[in-house]
Design a protein around this nucleic acid. Structure first.
Lengths: 248, 248
DNA sequence: CCCGACGGTTCACTATTTGAACCAGTGTTT
DNA sequence: AAACACTGGTTCAAATAGTGAACCGTCGGG
């Protein structure tokens, strides 16, 4: 791997649950030598992508990231515009709702609004979702150009659970159904016990740029509930699309 | 420079005003070979810190940055908590107000709320402010521990304008005055024609973590105006500090 | 139809990165 | 209090990864 890749993978070790990590631990998890990890951290720190807590000497993500993200968000205010709609949808459905952006062949989870219920689905910001096997992915493919779908189906489809669709034919049917309904439905295709309803969010050129999904425990969802969530998800996705393109 | 440093400096070429740049332009500005720049961009793109617009083939900052920034902000919600207060202060004073975070020996501008007036001070997100020579810096030093101030004064002080304080003695006096008043005042110490009032924002341990500053054209500020801005800045800074530490 | 941009690729050369072994400090266990 | 097991941090010869001049093909004016 390139040294740049190694440096970035150090950044990716930090999570919402573990925002500060020590040198040895970082080196261990990244599979790097301590000396190497430190040199990379110092290089990142010089540009403020990493900061070191002076007292504990532990490392954390730096202010430079906030800065760069602000530049990106100003140009492409996806999360900023979508967040309130996601929140509203979560309150309306009572379920966890997450927002993903398409990036490098997969969906990257950018924002999550958790259900208030005790029995809820937990999703982490940063989780990478495959296009097949998740409701978000199916919804995304259903809104994509046919050639993009074809290219994706060329590659082998990894199974994540025993429910994951791995046959291109099955996937094509699911995509067609999602296209006709406007939303996708998927149960346990990526994680056991999770039911999801997904809808695509479109950019200015009409191409999908991301998705939102309502995620519930399978036990809580029947066909009628799913249909209701679907309608709500489509409305929310359309609202975000409209705001992105400057309407409303 | 390390390859990591080069890669990050590519990221830093993107600004609010120029959020998409082509390969040759990036290489030129970073002082890198085209082949090198491309390899670094690919490494960054693999981790979604960079994206490439498929049509124009130009590069832009990637979704991975939003993700990492969200992790940082969740741990350390500085901008999120401060932004509304900054906005309020800008409306109240009618002037540009900017928020900075201390990082690696300097203040990094994270957020700006511009004045509605035609004749206003413009500040860019990402601008790095020195501790001496800016109202923000003086306010920060005034809230810092004495040993930190001493260490900073050891190093030579660069002059940015003919008004920049470069004598440690002068700086000590300015810091003492700021400490007694609660806010700092600086005219044209960093940029010609700009008058600023700064106030420090304190973290949970009582140590300063950043500043806010009201920036006006010098022509618009007399002593009474400055005093008013100072009081307002202190109130705003205290409010942000309180919110950071969980109060209010 | 040429010219000069552009994005992208190749490969011999070389400079940067690597990691085992080494400190020093700290807190726990014996 | 001595031994231990961690931690963060440093060094330098060996090896790997990075570099850039020269090369495509393409695009858009003049």
């Amino acid at each position: 791997m390139s040294t740049v890749g190694k440096a970035v993978s150090l950044l990716e070790l930090f999570t919402l649950h573990e925002p500060e990590i020590g040198l040895s631990e970082l080196a261990r998890r990244a599979g790097l030598d301590k000396a190497t990890a430190r040199r990379l951290l110092m290089a990142l720190a010089a540009h403020r992508l990493i900061e070191q807590e002076p007292r504990s000497r532990r490392y954390r993500l730096g202010a430079g990231l906030s800065r760069l993200a602000r530049i990106r968000d100003a140009h492409f205010p996806f999360v900023r515009l979508a967040a309130p709609v996601i929140r509203e949808l979560s309150l309306e459905t009572g379920e966890t709702v997450h927002l993903s952006e398409f990036s490098a062949g997969a969906l990257l989870t950018l924002h999550v609004e958790l259900s208030a219920k005790a029995n809820r689905v937990n999703v982490d910001v940063g989780q990478v979702l495959p296009l097949h096997g998740t409701a978000s992915g199916i919804a995304f493919l259903a809104a994509s150009r046919l050639e993009a779908v074809g290219a994706y189906l060329e590659k082998p489809l990894q199974a994540f659970t025993s429910f994951t669709m791995t046959q291109p034919d099955d996937l094509v049917k699911a995509i067609a159904l999602a296209a006709s309904r406007g939303y996708s439905r998927s149960a346990q295709g990526y994680e056991e016990g999770v039911h999801s309803i997904g809808a695509a969010i479109l950019g200015t050129d009409g191409q999908p740029i991301g998705t939102l999904a309502v995620a519930s425990p399978v036990s809580r969802v029947d066909d009628a509930t799913a249909a209701g969530q679907g309608e709500a998800a489509v409305r929310a996705a359309r609202l975000i699309s409209a705001r992105l393109t400057g309407e409303a």
